[in-house]
Every structure is written in C-alpha cells, then in structure tokens.
C-alpha cells in the first residue's frame, strides 16, 4: 500500500458532482434503506451547491443514481418550471449529461418536492422525494435519542393521540401534508409534505421511492409492493382532499389535485397542481398528440 495506490490522476471535477467516496457511502445507506422500508438511515450528507433545506437530500440520491442515459424530471410542488425545479434540473443535466424532461412518462428519475405525479409511475422509474423533516415523532418527542428508542419499540401511540386531539378540537383530522404512515407494518414514516391525496400512491406501488433529508442527514425508502398505511382510527376512514368537483380553469382537467388561486375580486379559481399534466391536456385539446399515461385517480377516486 502506498499513497499513489490510494490516489487518482487529477481531474477538474467528479462525474455527477459527488466524489466516488460520497457516492459509495450513499449507496450503502440506500441498500439498507431498501432492506428496512420506512426506517430512517443516517448518512453523511455532503455539501452540494444549493442551501440545506432546498432539496440537498434528494439531490444527493439523484446524483448517486444518475448516468448519461438517465432522463430527469424535477417537480416543485407539482410544477416543472419554478425556479427551484428548473435550477435543480439544469444542475443535474450539467454535471451528468443526463436528459431533462417535464414529462412523467419520459423520466427515469423523478425528483420531487411535495408532490407525486398524477400519472402512474412504472416499474423502471425511481421517485426521489425531498424531505424537510424526516422524523414523524418530532412533534411529540423533540429528543431524537428518545424518538429513536420509540421507533425501536414501535411505540407510536402518541401519533394517534395527535390525530385524536385534532378530531376532538376540529371534528375532523386536520393533518393536511406529511401524514404519518406505517410502512411494512413496522416503521412509521413521514411521507414528506405531500398532500393526503398522494399518500395512497406509495402503497403497493410499482416504482421505487427514496426519501432523503439533506439537512437532517437521513434517508429512507419505500420499495415496490410495500404496504404504506396512513395511521387511521378504525371508525374514521382515511380521507383524501375532496377535489372531485373542481375543474382546472386552464386545461379543463377534473378529478386531479388542484391548486387554489385566490382572485382579487374575491372567490378563487383552481388549476391542476401537476403542471405538465395540465400542459398535456391543453395540447390534446388543441389537437396535438400528447400522450397522457394512466392516472392514479379517476374522478377524484383512487384506483388501487
């Protein structure tokens, strides 16, 4: 063993931005994350050229997976064209030579903040969710050592208590995003701040999901065909947002998750949150042959 064995010729930069050693560490943690679905696995979380809390966790997982043949779609709250989504997508393609797309059907890797596309993901696709707070127990137990012990004991009673208190105070469950869900019958995870609408898309899905929190330095995974059950009371069924009767004012889409846009004159209009699905619907209405894949929801009802 000599120093020259352990070093490489100088290069201006590593392919995919992260150095090979960082990628190996994330790979090892991703393998453990798959082996114990929903269990938060600590990792080193390297510096990347965006600020912590803006998608660094998702970015590191994507940079580890990416290769020149990859096609990446980046979503920010449903949209492909927001500054955050566009910047991350351009960064990914610049450091890897991978293709960029807005189309869910064309993507091999979908990195997303707070939404899962409305079109069903396939067996060969990887969904990477950016996670601000990976610890579902944090609202009930700020001490992370004790929270770890609670995960070890599967001691999740206080999460039901939170939901019960919401029922008592408000008459319904108020948890809108990051709804806690039991994965593989063992670990409760926070599915990142996706709306309730999106949580059933993780249950027994065909695709592989990674959830990664860069600031908190933890990642976890939901493999395909894994049970993801939102915590519910047996007499209070899980309810997704009721967007059945809403129509997108730009594309005419119905039965998908909508953004509410308040109007100056009072009232509000609605717009499909999955922006590229809306664009494809508009193109089709104009006679273009934009292909829309099968959707998870039909008329506001989840299609298992």
């Amino acid at each position: 063993m000599s120093l020259s064995n352990l070093t490489r010729p100088w290069a201006a930069f590593s392919y995919g931005f992260l150095d090979p050693s960082a990628k190996r560490e994330i790979r090892r943690k991703m393998i453990k994350a798959i082996a114990v679905p929903g269990c938060q696995i600590p990792y080193a979380s390297r510096e990347v050229p965006i600020a912590r809390g803006w998608g660094t966790g998702g970015l590191q997982v994507t940079l580890t997976l990416i290769k020149p043949a990859s096609v990446v779609k980046v979503i920010d709250q449903g949209a492909d064209d927001s500054v955050n989504a566009a910047s991350i997508r351009r960064f990914l393609s610049r450091v890897s030579g991978a293709g960029e797309t807005w189309d869910t059907l064309a993507a091999t890797i979908v990195q997303s903040r707070h939404r899962i596309p409305e079109e069903r993901l396939r067996d060969d696709q990887v969904l990477v969710l950016q996670v601000p707070n990976p610890e579902p127990l944090r609202p009930v137990q700020p001490n992370m050592s004790i929270a770890r012990q609670m995960h070890a004991d599967a001691d999740y009673g206080r999460l039901w208590l939170v939901l019960y208190e919401q029922m008592v105070r408000s008459g319904r469950i108020m948890q809108g995003a990051a709804y806690p869900a039991l994965v593989n019958g063992r670990h409760v995870m926070t599915p990142s701040p996706i709306p309730r609408w999106d949580v059933p898309k993780l249950n027994m899905a065909r695709h592989l999901t990674f959830l990664s929190a860069g600031r908190e330095k933890r990642l976890y995974a939901v493999p395909p065909f894994t049970r993801v059950e939102p915590l519910v009371f047996s007499d209070v069924p899980y309810k997704v947002e009721d967007h059945t009767r809403l129509t997108c004012h730009r594309s005419g889409l119905t039965g998908v998750f909508m953004n509410e846009i308040p109007q100056a004159a009072g009232g509000s209009v609605f717009e499909a949150s999955d922006s590229h699905l809306g664009i494809k619907a508009i193109r089709r209405a104009e006679g273009d042959a934009a292909e829309i894949g099968p959707l998870w929801y039909q008329n506001g009802e989840f299609r298992g």
């Binding site: 392919y15 090979p20 990628k23 890897s96």
Partner: peptide, 11 residues
C-alpha cells in the same frame, strides 16, 4: 461531463 470507466462500472 463524461463518466470514467470506473464511474460507469460502479453505477
């Protein structure tokens, strides 16, 4: 950006 042979193999 061009991956090295090592990058491609590991990936």
């Amino acid at each position: 950006p061009v991956p090295t042979q090592d990058d491609l193999r590991d990936n």
